[in-house]
Simulated scan of single mutants.
Amino acid sequence: MIVLPQDHRTAIAAHAVEAHPEECCGLMLGTFDDGGDRVVRELLPISNARESEARHNRFLIGPMEMLKGEREARARGLDVVGIYHSHPDVPAVPSQFDLDHAWPVYSYVIVTSHADSTGDLRSWQLREDRSGFDEEQVGTPDGGPPGRT
């Protein structure tokens, strides 16, 4: 499970609407708890480094941005626990491109974005054999039901 506070869901949704009709992206910084859950403590929005003609259905976090994120996390006593991005006007389900570029261990939060709103926010984990993703529960810090974005 990924524990994602409502204020972070709201921030991801705002980033997605702002970037629409292009994909937004960012890192989720937090901790891995004893049960293997990822607990998001901070977000690090990142500019989509993909070539402009492909940003409507692809995102890219450049290697220097990833390194910067890892250093920021470490300086705050946190880890990079996941990556978020938007899918403009399509379901929050990983694409083949997402699968081809996914890394193990991370949670992948995807939010459906529209010009003035967002839809579903879902999280996924890459299978160990890299054959696909499994959906994971998105929880709240208080253990209550997940809220909408």
Results as ranks from 00 to 15, higher is better:
I2Y: 05
V3P: 00
L4E: 07
R9N: 10
R9F: 03
T10I: 01
T10W: 10
I12K: 01
I12A: 01
A13I: 08
V17L: 12
E18L: 06
H20W: 15
E22W: 09
C24S: 13
C24H: 12
M28A: 11
T31A: 08
D34P: 05
R38N: 03
V40Q: 07
R41W: 02
E42V: 00
L44C: 12
P45L: 01
R50F: 00
R50S: 15
R50K: 00
R50C: 09
E51T: 04
E53F: 05
F59Y: 10
L60S: 07
P63N: 13
P63K: 02
E65V: 03
L67F: 08
G69E: 07
E70K: 10
A73M: 04
G77W: 03
L78T: 08
V81F: 05
Y84Q: 05
S86A: 07
P88H: 10
V93A: 08
V93M: 08
P94Y: 07
F97D: 15
F97M: 02
L99Q: 13
A102W: 06
A102D: 15
V105Y: 01
Y106E: 11
D116Y: 10
T118V: 14
G119H: 03
S123H: 06
Q125G: 08
R127L: 15
R127H: 05
R127A: 06
E128A: 14
D129T: 01
F133Y: 02
D134H: 08
T140S: 13
T140W: 02
D142Y: 05
G143T: 00
P146Y: 09
